[in-house]
Computed example of a mutant assay.
Amino acid sequence: MTDPRLGGGLLAAVQRLRTGSGVIVRHYHLPEQQRAALLRDVRRICRRRGHFVFWAGNERQAIRCHADGFHSRSGPAGRSKLPRSAPVHDVTELAQAKRKGAQMILVSPLYATASHPGARPMGMTRFRRIAMHSGRAAIIVLGGMTAARGRMQDKRIVHGWAGISAYR
C-alpha cells in the first residue's frame, strides 16, 4: 500500500518486494494526474518484478492509468473489467465487498498500526469470523504487519499480507 510516509523510498520499497507481490497506489493527497504518474513509475518496476499494481479509486480511473485492478469499497456492484480489491474492517463491510464483486479482501487492522492510531485491533477472533465468511475472495491481512507476523499467518486462510510501515 503506498502512503506519503514512504517518501522518496517508495520505489526502492517496491523493488524489494518478493516476486509476485502487489502494490495498491493510494497517495490520495495527490491530484489525479500526479497520482497517475506515480502509478506509471510503480508499474514499470512491477512489470519487471512480476508484481501487479492496483489503483485505489474507481475502475474507470484504473483502466485509464493501465492498472491491473482497482481498490474500492464504493461504486457499482457486479462484474468489472478489472480485478477488484476492497478494504474490510468487519462482517458488514465484508458483505458489502462480496456484493461489489471484490476478489481480494484486505482485512484490517489485525494489530495496532501507525496508519490508524487509536483504532482498536480486531484480534484473531474477529479476523477468523470475517475470514470464514469470505467465500472465494483472497484474504490479505494488514495493520501492524511485519515480515515475521506475515510468516505466522495460516496459509490455508490468508493469501498474503500488506503493509506500509513495514517497508520503510
Rank of each mutant, 00 (worst) to 15 (best):
Arg35Pro: 08
Leu110Ile: 13
Gln34Ile: 01
Gln34Asn: 09
Arg48Cys: 03
Arg43Cys: 01
Val23Leu: 05
Gly69His: 04
Pro109Ser: 06
Leu82Val: 11
Ser72Glu: 14
Val141Leu: 15
Val25Ala: 06
Ala95Ile: 00
Ser21His: 03
Arg99Met: 11
Pro87Glu: 13
Ala86Ser: 15
Tyr111Trp: 14
Gln153Leu: 15
Ala138Met: 10
Lys98Gly: 01
Glu32Asn: 01
Gly118Ile: 08
Ile130His: 11
Gln153Asn: 04
Ala112Gly: 12
Ser115Leu: 05
Ile45Ser: 02
Thr113Phe: 09
Thr125Gln: 15
Ile130Gln: 12
Leu110Thr: 03
Phe127Met: 09
Arg35Trp: 06
Phe54Met: 14
Cys65Pro: 08
Leu110Arg: 03
Ala148Ser: 09
Arg35Phe: 08
Ala137Ile: 02
Gln153His: 01
Ala56Phe: 00
Asp154Pro: 12
Gln153Thr: 13
Gly69Ser: 03
Arg151Ser: 14
Ser108Phe: 05
Cys65Lys: 01
Ala112Lys: 10
Gly123Val: 07
Asn58Gln: 13
Val23Phe: 02
Arg129Cys: 14
Met124Thr: 12
Met152Trp: 00
Pro31Trp: 02
Val107Tyr: 00
Val23Thr: 07
Ala56Ile: 00
Arg129Leu: 15
Arg99Gly: 01
Ile45Lys: 01
Pro76Glu: 06
Ile105Ser: 06
Gln33Cys: 07
Ala37Pro: 00
Arg64Val: 10
Trp55Ser: 03
Gly75Glu: 05
Asp68Gly: 06
Lys98Ile: 11
Arg120Ser: 14
Ala62Leu: 05
Arg48Ala: 14
Arg151Gly: 15
Arg47Cys: 07
Arg47Asp: 08
Met145Asn: 08
Ala148Ile: 11
Arg129Ala: 15
Ala148Arg: 14
Leu94Cys: 13
